[in-house]
Amino acid sequence: MKTLIEITDLTYKYRSGGGNAVTALNGVTMQVYRGEILAITGQNGSGKSTLARHFNALLTPGSGEVIVDGLSVNDKKNTAAIRRIVGMVFQNPDNQLVSSVVEEDVAFGPENLGLPQAEIVKRVDWALKSLDLEAYRYRSPNSLSEGQKQLVAIAGVLAMKPKCIVLDEPTAHLDPKGKREVLENVQRLNRDEGITTVLLTHSMNEVVHCDRMIIMDQGLIKLTGAPRELFAQAEQIKALGLDLPAAAQLAYGLKLKGLTLPGNILTIEELVASLCQLP
């Protein structure tokens, strides 16, 4: 079975402060494939966080269906099983770390699963090693950089051995170095451990490294495809209030000025290579 998460015609409404019902998702149909890195992007308020919170049953559908690894989110009995399959990392590490000791925090998830003590220790060792955090094992998260804190949050999810990790804007508040640390580790876990990854982000430079991307707007999926295909449609992307990756944007501008460049440049390296081939 190729599909890990299957979403059909999902709608979700929530009550605003004034008591009005606001439609956050308005008929979303999509899939997350096993082993891929999928980027979900869109402006703030486009519904991407609401969508992602259905992936591990933090929200249940207003209408429509969400099937995770054969289990329906609509059925409350599946909730515990689904949360073992799909782990979630949030934007602000300070608001998701429970413990004041790194290893204790990583153990929090496995402890909740009711695993035997020896297995918890094994998993904590493994998760800390996978993310190169062993040196900080007994430290307080408060003494770490923001990027390292976010890695601790990822380790805490990893220790639950999920098939899929959903990251909700994990780099939004990080500095460039922290961003790089987090992204490189996410990519490595996907490659080495085969963990299906869903990355919610505003940064198009991050999207470039994903296998597939979904662009959302006003509770709907507007575009789906490989980043290279979608970024070739510069006007459409801009109309949805998003940027192109820097290299693609530069290539687009140069083409408008009459330079003949290929239509699907994504990275700096590609742009430089194409520029060098110009007559």
């Binding site: 919170r53 591990n56 933090l58 515990a80 949360r83 073992r84 782990g87 979630m88 949030f90 602000n92 608001n95 998701q96 429970v98 929090f108 998830g109 909740n112 699963l113 805490g156 999810v157 639950m160």
Partner: peptide
């Protein structure tokens, strides 16, 4: 946010 994060890590 903390409650949601704890719930996402199977805290019940």
């Amino acid at each position: 946010e903390l409650i949601i994060a704890m719930e996402a890590r199977s805290y019940t």
